[in-house]
Design a protein around this nucleic acid. Sequence first.
DNA 1: GTTATTTTTGCAACCGGTTGCAAAAAGCTG
DNA 2: CAGCTTTTTGCAACCGGTTGCAAAAATAAC
Lengths: 334, 334
Amino acid sequence: MNATLKDVANRAGVSRSAVSRTFTDGASVSEKMRRKVEKAAEELGYSPNLLARSLTTRRTKMIGLISNNFHNPIFLTVFDQFTKALQERGLRPLLVNLSDETDPQNSVRMMREYSVDGVIVASSTLSPAFSKAFRDQGMPVVHTFGQYSSAPSVHVVGIDNVECGRMAARSLVARGLTHVGFMGGPIAATSTQDRHAGFAEIIAQHPDIACDVSYADAYSFDAGRREMMRLAQDNPAQAYFCGDDVLSIGALSALRDCNLSVPDDVGIIGLNDMEMAGWENIDLTTIHQPIKQSINSSVKLIVAMLDEPNRYPEARIFPCDIVERGTLRPKAEN
Amino acid sequence: MNATLKDVANRAGVSRSAVSRTFTDGASVSEKMRRKVEKAAEELGYSPNLLARSLTTRRTKMIGLISNNFHNPIFLTVFDQFTKALQERGLRPLLVNLSDETDPQNSVRMMREYSVDGVIVASSTLSPAFSKAFRDQGMPVVHTFGQYSSAPSVHVVGIDNVECGRMAARSLVARGLTHVGFMGGPIAATSTQDRHAGFAEIIAQHPDIACDVSYADAYSFDAGRREMMRLAQDNPAQAYFCGDDVLSIGALSALRDCNLSVPDDVGIIGLNDMEMAGWENIDLTTIHQPIKQSINSSVKLIVAMLDEPNRYPEARIFPCDIVERGTLRPKAEN
DNA sequence: GTTATTTTTGCAACCGGTTGCAAAAAGCTG
DNA sequence: CAGCTTTTTGCAACCGGTTGCAAAAATAAC
């Protein structure tokens, strides 16, 4: 079928090593030889088999791209950026959908079977047990959107969710509200827990502010809508910090159906600043997460780890900022 | 590092073939041998290297999943479904982002280098030259969301876009409108051309109906919004068939900003029925495309082709139907 | 308990590449 | 042109598996 090294060698009348050398950069081949081989390769339409090569070089140039989040539109951007950034460096993403997988060992085995050079875990809801399991196997791992901790056990790239919680709380406090709400994402996710911790920390400094806390069971429109439907029935807060933009949009839809006006009756602040948040029919005030920076940094990090597998784990944290749009009343002018 | 076949063989005190056989189903091994080998493998944490295996079996169990559409949220669903369907069958998607690639030969080489077992092209906007290039290399190919033709040169799975155009036109005609519009996606996409052909065919049967035709330059919110902004300035039609749901949502946003009410001043019918179309703050009337069916069918087809590479090309077309929501006035009761 | 038949096992070659090493070729010096 | 150095080339072993074939072991038949 496809031409092999041997075919090219025969046609060019040279040894197999010579052919191999013309196709590996940095190898010693004379100009004359190179031309001869390239001509034969051209004629046969030869291209080297990277998997066979990987057997000796121990590099497949494949990176496991692992996520459990295939419902939040923000992740389409995430996949777009990751694939591009990896491709630019000659790496190929082997995509793994962990939506309904609970056993890290399974994924570890899968990645080992395919000898990926490294693994990128892209999720804010996946248990850290997954990234640790990969590390324990000696694979380079980066956990993008993972939990920031001052002593990370694997490389983490993303944002400081605790600080985001604080930011959201501060911005509600600055508006002089007396009754606020935290409507988080899945309670099991570290991102939810951290955002809540930061939010609660600031609110606790203001004993006069009442704070309701509740959680949606997924980062999805429906979950956000359902949860806000429930909250709206019974003395809703003046404004909510929602787990993310998709939840916020779900909540907005619920508020509209309950005839509560936004931002006058109820304000909403989201998190992510996904493209859709800026759409005019949504116009969501939200905390911008620097996705692009996180992804580029993650890819650079995984590339660095290929040459330096035992690199000391670090956390790369990018700052967020609030994008004011139409779902939160402007601050009172002082 | 990782245990190999040989390590297991040594530990179990048997030949390498014996180990290999216990890990390939259908091979002849005695119970006693199997237990011995499995014990040793267990102790060493051995799992076979699928890439080395592929060298002799000529099966990598990797499928190239190729798309150029990383902006339309519908494609997150697409990737979700594809990855799940492939994983269920023990196949792994090697994801390729072709957003800014124009040369099919590049992609072909890449897929060859990685010896993928087959290629799924998932796009309604990618030139057929890509799927053909893969086929010409002898790779099994399925073009999902590709152009339906009665004599397809590669396997195509999806919908009949011409018929969708007709459906949309008929539904506008049935409403007694006298001025309608076709606001298509990128003009170069076969899906756009086909939808327009069907739409125009029906409208042509009604000489009393005026029809405007225009195109957005991408399947994106912004493009839809921009195009509708333009249309709304100057005698807009009573209703538009938009290229897809994302374009429709962009158009809705523009209409709102122009103070045109939907559906009273201007009606909109989209295509896809993405999850978001059902969100209460969007509530888009649209033509439902059976994505899930197309994807399952595509995966079954590619699997079938693994055993039967020269299978005669077929087109698998699934019917669409209109989902009536709030952006198109109900039909007049007769 | 032999012998014939079936099942299990190991040997060795192969899949498509890479690479250390030594021989051959080319380039320098004088 | 001999003698030395450097570059280029081919040989052969290896990467981690599979598999056809024949020998060995187990089972069945008499």
